[in-house]
Design a protein around this nucleic acid. Sequence first.
DNA 1: AGACTTTATCGGAATTGGCGCATAATATGG
DNA 2: CCATATTATGCGCCAATTCCGATAAAGTCT
Lengths: 82, 82
Amino acid sequence: MTELARTPKQIGAIIRRARKQRGWTQTELGARAGLRQETISLMETGNPAARLDSLLAVLAALGLECRVLSRSTGETALEEIF
Amino acid sequence: MTELARTPKQIGAIIRRARKQRGWTQTELGARAGLRQETISLMETGNPAARLDSLLAVLAALGLECRVLSRSTGETALEEIF
DNA sequence: AGACTTTATCGGAATTGGCGCATAATATGG
DNA sequence: CCATATTATGCGCCAATTCCGATAAAGTCT
């Protein structure tokens, strides 16, 4: 199971899905990632200005990781990201 | 070809490698991603506080994309990220 | 409906990205 | 070598995250 993450919103959705799958609250995930519940909330709602290290900490806490590969199919214009 | 991206430094290295592969300068990549050369420089050197949207813009400009999947092998402690 | 849990939001303070402009420091090449 | 191109730093500024504490707004369940 591998999820596409081209936009902040997509990433937020992935995080929320994974968190719920584990039955965790935002507060719980925040504690594991060393972040506040508020920060998790922002991230899950697609905060485009989230810090890279915060994102990586959350992924690690969820037992997830990020892989970079050449864009296979479909285009995402720069504007879509924001 | 898929690259593991668990830390800001790894991501920076991936970006630099991809950029050089295309024969682009940081200024060139910056222009395509809507960012400044200085920002690209910081990113490639592993800036942990880079903004998520900036990172995604750079990946898109390089024709790359990010995928999130369950962490397969090896552990990365939270401290490693910083 | 009512109580409880979970999530979203708001104040202020501190920190930092990213911009603009400029300039060292470091490749690169002729 | 030396001129040039490329990359890394510098300062001031504005905007925005993130933290802290607290609270409003949803959601969940009996």
